[in-house]
């Protein structure tokens, strides 16, 4: 038994190494004083300095931030409503519409939104990206909120009603405070998803608007440069912080339970 669990641990350790080593390499090379991601030459902040002077990159980051904030704000409201509705009522259409965008290959949503926006004469840009991001973030927020609600003892709201609270009071005083961590976790997830999205953004961005992932894509398509390592490292740091906060607030939420 002991020997077997040792093998299991070794295999699992390899699994973790497989997950982490590539990312660590990206981070390490962002401090390497060399144009090439090859031999270690020496420590430098140079690539971060380059990054901060890169106008295009800064614009892209700014765009990502604006889209991320507005998309996650709207998606949190709509997703919370969807999650509550799915928990509270027997619905047929809404759960399908909420889960489908998560379940199908992203490219399908990207191309169908492209056709849709062009047909409606919506100029592809910040607005179309934001609208698309809201559509796929709703589902994630809804799932987190619903899982939080399912974990809640149903007799709590009944007890509130029983003790004299109206429907609305029971929701405001009992349900809402109890699911708030789930809502915040959902909002952080939505923001992260929006900041990170590449595929759907790729199709709905048009020529003018560039987000951080699009900028990274166009750079690595041409050549590997340590500036990308630097921006990747910063992006990972931001994501890490947000996700750790989110998972603290709603354990299990990120597993899609």
């Amino acid at each position: 038994m002991a020997r077997r669990s040792w093998i299991l641990w070794a295999m699992a350790a390899l699994g973790y190494a497989f997950l982490y080593v590539p990312l660590i390499i990206v981070i390490v090379y962002s401090f390497n004083d060399s144009r090439l991601n090859a031999e270690w030459v020496g420590f430098t902040w140079h690539w971060y300095e380059v990054l901060l002077k890169d106008e295009q990159m800064l614009t892209a980051a700014w765009n990502s931030l604006i889209i991320g904030v507005s998309a996650s704000a709207v998606a949190t409201v709509l997703g919370t409503m969807a999650g509550y509705a799915m928990y509270r009522f027997k619905l047929r259409l809404l759960p399908v519409l909420v889960l489908m965008p998560i379940a199908i290959p992203e490219i399908l949503m990207g191309v169908s939104l492209l056709i849709f926006f062009v047909m409606l004469n919506v100029t592809l840009g910040m607005l179309s990206i934001t609208l698309a991001h809201i559509a796929f973030c709703i589902g994630f927020v809804a799932i987190v909120v619903r899982s939080r609600l399912t974990g809640m003892d149903e007799s709590l709201t009944e007890a509130a009603r029983d003790l004299g609270a109206t429907h609305w009071q029971a929701f405001r005083l009992i349900t809402l405070p109890l699911i708030m961590p789930g809502i915040i976790a959902g909002a952080l997830m939505a923001f992260t998803l929006s900041i990170d999205d590449f595929v759907i953004t790729f199709f709905t961005a048009g020529v003018d608007a560039t987000t951080l992932p699009l900028q990274i894509y166009s750079m690595i398509k041409i050549a590997v440069t340590p500036e990308v390592n630097a921006v990747s490292t910063l992006l990972m740091l931001v994501t890490l912080i947000l996700i750790v906060i989110a998972s603290r607030l709603s354990p299990g939420a990120l597993r899609g339970e």
Binding site: L23, V26, T192, D196, V199, P213, I216, S232, L235, I243
Partner: peptide, 9 residues
Amino acid sequence: WSNFLIRVY
């Protein structure tokens, strides 16, 4: 949760 492109990169 880290960016998809970073992982490919």
